[in-house]
Simulated scan of single mutants.
Amino acid sequence: MKTFKFVKSMVVAAAIAVTSLSASTAPVQAQGLIEEIAQRGRIRVGLSTFVPWAMRDRNGELIGFEVDVARQLAEDMGVEVEFVPTAWGGIVPALLANRFDVIIGGLSITPGRNMTINFTRPYAHSGQQMAANIELAGEFTSLDDYNSTSVTLVCRRGATSCDYISQRFPRATLRQFDDEAQAYQEVANGNAHAIISSAPKPAFYTADHPDTIFMANGGDNLTSGNEGFGLRKGDPDALNFFSNWILYRTSDGWLQERHDYWFRDQSAWIDQIAAD
């Protein structure tokens, strides 16, 4: 009996020693993004202005679907929100450079982007539409007519629509703009045949310029897509938190209500935004 007690005591002592050694030599876990945001008291959100995702109103304040999403997220986290407007073509590099904590900006989930950053579960579902110049493309009868060396197509630099144009219309001349409003103006002025961008902006622009612009492809979407929050890799807790927040706000109908407000009919908010 004494021998058993002695052996048992030695095992316990050894276990305590190993545990203590492991605790002393184990690397200290880096602070996660959620803890950092909570301590800072502010979440930094990267976005790019793009109707109706994020826009400037007549007072210069940001409004739009993404803005509502970011503000509600911050409220639910109990922190303030800081918007960091960023050129779309550089928004992923800016995230990686830690200029902000998360991209909430209608960022489509693609394999190429996912190689560099992590995506949450989708919080919105859109697609690409084409708005075309009546004088230049009014007689086109199919999408194949746009795949010609005599055709010029435009898009916002860094957007998935640019990739789509390159793949679907490889013979067309592709021009990219950092300012999407300028890209639309090129079509309206007859300097480009059409623009491809995320719905519903092409439909909204066509409605505002019925004498010069029409919806190609019968108004149907060219593609379908899923948009998620963009995060730096290496923080599964942050990915879990934001994805579950999206699930929570999807389940209670809030995300759908806000999406419907901004995407179904611009008459409810068009008078608020600054003129192009």
Rank of each mutant, 00 (worst) to 15 (best):
T3V: 00
F4G: 06
V11S: 11
V12E: 03
A13G: 12
A13S: 07
A14V: 14
A15M: 14
A17Y: 04
S20G: 15
S20P: 07
A23L: 15
T25F: 12
Q31V: 05
G32P: 07
L33E: 06
A38T: 15
V45A: 07
T49W: 10
M55Y: 02
D57C: 01
D57W: 01
R58L: 13
L62S: 09
A70K: 04
R71F: 00
R71A: 04
A74G: 12
E75T: 12
V79R: 02
E82P: 01
P85R: 03
T86D: 07
G89Q: 15
P93C: 10
L96I: 15
N98E: 15
G105T: 08
T110Y: 03
P111N: 12
R121N: 12
P122W: 00
Y123K: 00
A124H: 05
A124G: 03
S126Q: 13
G127Q: 07
N133M: 13
N133A: 14
L136M: 07
A137V: 11
T141K: 05
D144E: 13
T149K: 11
S150M: 13
V151I: 13
V151G: 11
C155G: 15
G158M: 09
T160W: 11
C162N: 10
P170H: 11
T173G: 01
T173L: 03
R175W: 04
Q176Y: 12
F177H: 08
F177C: 02
D178I: 11
D178Q: 08
N189W: 09
N189L: 15
N191Q: 14
A192L: 10
A192D: 14
I196P: 07
P200E: 00
A203N: 04
F204D: 07
T206C: 09
H209W: 05
I213L: 15
N217F: 13
G218A: 03
D220A: 13
L222I: 13
N226I: 04
E227A: 11
D235S: 01
D235N: 03
P236R: 09
F241A: 06
F241H: 08
F241R: 06
N244F: 07
W245C: 00
R249M: 01
R249T: 00
S251L: 12
S251A: 15
L255M: 06
Q256T: 08
D260K: 06
W262D: 03
F263T: 14
I270H: 06
I270R: 06
I273M: 15
A274F: 11
D276E: 09
